[in-house]
Design a protein around this nucleic acid. Structure first.
Lengths: 168, 168
DNA sequence: AGTTAATTGCGACTGAGTCTCAGACTCCGG
DNA sequence: CCGGAGTCTGAGACTCAGTCGCAATTAACT
C-alpha cells in the first residue's frame, strides 16, 4: 500500500510550492496519519507519536495539521460535540456523517442526490461553496435495539473514555 | 411581541417537570436570549448581561444554556470555526447555514427536498435521527464581487473582532 | 561545506467551558 | 405567612484544546 508514500510526495510538492520544507517531523506525522483509517483528534495523534517514542511537540502537531488541511490531504470534521476531528483524504472524496449520540459511533455516507441538492441551494443563493459539512445526530440501529433510549446521551462515558490520555 | 414571555412560561414548565426552579437569573437570560434575533456565543451573552448591569456569573450562563438546549427552546449550532454558537428556537423550526469564510456572514435556509433526502438516508441506514446540522462554507455573493478571493479566510479579523471582549 | 530562512521544542499563554462549595434563594406544606 | 429541604448562584480555581514567542536546530540551495 504505497498510499502513504505518495501522500508524503504530494505534501512535499505542496510545501515546495509554498517555499516550505519537508522535515522529518512532518514526514513522520503524515506517515502516522495515513496509517489511521479513521477520525482522530490532534492530541490523540500527539499521544500516538509519544507511544512510538517519536518525539514531536504539541505545537508541531498542530502546525503540521494546519498545513495538511491547507494542502487538502487532511480534512477537518466536526463530529457531534466538542473540538475538531481530522481524517485523511484518500484520493477519493468527500462524505458526511451519521453520529450516534449513544455509543459515539460514526457512519460515513455519500449521497449524490443530497450533494446535488446542496449545490442547487448555493446556486439559488448565489453562494460559491468551497466545502460543506453535514452531521446527522441520532441513535444507530444497534443502540436502538439494546434498550430503547438508554438514558442520557452519555456524556459521562465519552469523557471517561478520554480520561486516560495523560497530557505530556 | 409576547414571544419572550411565552418562552419563559415554556421554560418554567420544563423546569417544573424536572423538579427545577425558575430563578430570576434564568428568567433574565431567557429574556435576553429571545431579544437576540441572531446567533450568539455564550460569552457574548455574559457580556450583554454585564452591560445591562444584570449580575450573572459565567457558570450560570453556561448552566442555563444547557438547560435551554435540553428544553428545546435554544439550539446549539456549529458555524464555521471554533466553539459553539446558539440561537433561540422561534416556535417554527430547523434551518441550515451558509457561512461566508470571508466576511463571516451567515445565510440561513430551509430546503424541503434536502431535509427529505436526509431522512431517506437515515432510513436506509436504519439510523434514527434526532437532529442534524449542515453548514456549507464558501464565499457569499457580495464578497465574491468585491475583489475576487481577498486573500486568506480572515482568521485575523474574526479574532480582532472579539479581542474587545474583556473577560469578567 | 556554508548560508539562510524555515522549523522545532519549550513553556507560557489564551479562551471556552467546567467544577466545587458556601451562602442565598425558591417553593412547598403547614 | 413562615420554615425547611433542596435547588441555585457566584467566585475562583481548574481543565483542556489550541496558540505564540523565542532561542537553538535543520533543510535545501549554492
Amino acid at each position: 500500500m504505497p498510499r502513504t508514500e505518495s501522500a508524503i510526495t504530494n505534501f512535499h510538492g505542496f510545501l515546495q510550492d509554498q517555499g516550505l520544507k519537508l522535515t522529518s517531523e512532518r514526514a513522520a506525522l503524515v506517515r502516522e496519519i495515513f496509517s489511521i483509517h479513521y477520525h482522530f483528534e490532534a492530541d490523540e495523534l500527539l499521544f500516538k507519536m509519544k507511544e512510538k517514542s517519536v518525539k514531536i511537540s504539541r505545537a508541531t502537531v498542530y502546525r503540521t495539521l494546519e498545513l495538511l488541511v491547507k494542502s487538502g490531504l487532511v480534512r477537518r470534521v466536526h463530529l457531534g460535540e466538542d473540538h475538531y476531528h481530522y481524517e485523511h483524504v484518500s484520493g477519493d472524496s468527500h462524505h458526511d456523517h451519521l453520529v450516534c449520540t449513544t455509543c459515539g459511533g460514526v457512519i460515513e455516507f455519500l449521497d449524490e442526490p443530497l450533494e446535488k441538492r446542496a449545490l442547487e441551494i448555493c446556486e439559488k443563493k448565489k453562494f460559491r461553496p468551497t466545502f460543506h459539512n453535514l452531521q446527522i445526530l441520532g441513535i444507530c440501529d444497534s443502540c436502538r435495539r439494546k434498550g430503547e433510549e438508554p438514558e442520557a446521551p452519555d456524556r459521562v462515558t465519552m469523557i471517561a473514555a478520554r480520561a486516560m490520555k495523560l497530557r505530556k
